[in-house]
């Protein structure tokens, strides 16, 4: 059973470029968006299970320098138009 999630990031001022470049190296991340508003970066990640999500977030994402806060939102259900 695979799991998809959105992760919302708050990034240290001036480090966005660096953080995004590091995030793009993680193969499970399928979309990286630099946004305006409450958060600075929003990514979408596809993993096999919650265990893998835990490993990727703690071992890889949290290690990236410049990230000040993350919030992971697991997708429970998805409705696509078309």
């Amino acid at each position: 059973m695979s799991v998809s999630a959105y992760i919302f990031f708050e990034v240290e001022l001036g480090k966005t470029r660096q953080v995004v470049d590091e995030l793009r190296k993680i193969p499970n991340i399928v979309r990286v968006a630099i946004v305006t508003g409450e958060y600075d970066v929003i990514v979408r990640i596809n993993v096999e299970n919650l265990e893998e999500l835990f490993h990727i977030t703690t071992d890889r994402i949290h290690m990236i320098e410049g990230i000040t806060d993350t919030q992971t939102a697991v997708i429970e259900k998805e409705e696509i138009q078309e």
Binding site: A5, T72, I75, K77, E78, E79, I80, Q81
Partner: peptide, 16 residues
């Protein structure tokens, strides 16, 4: 929501 023009997809998520 999904029938609104411009909305490509809607996800129910955990968290805030």
């Amino acid at each position: 929501l999904t029938k609104i023009k411009g909305v490509t997809d809607v996800s129910f998520i955990t968290g805030t």
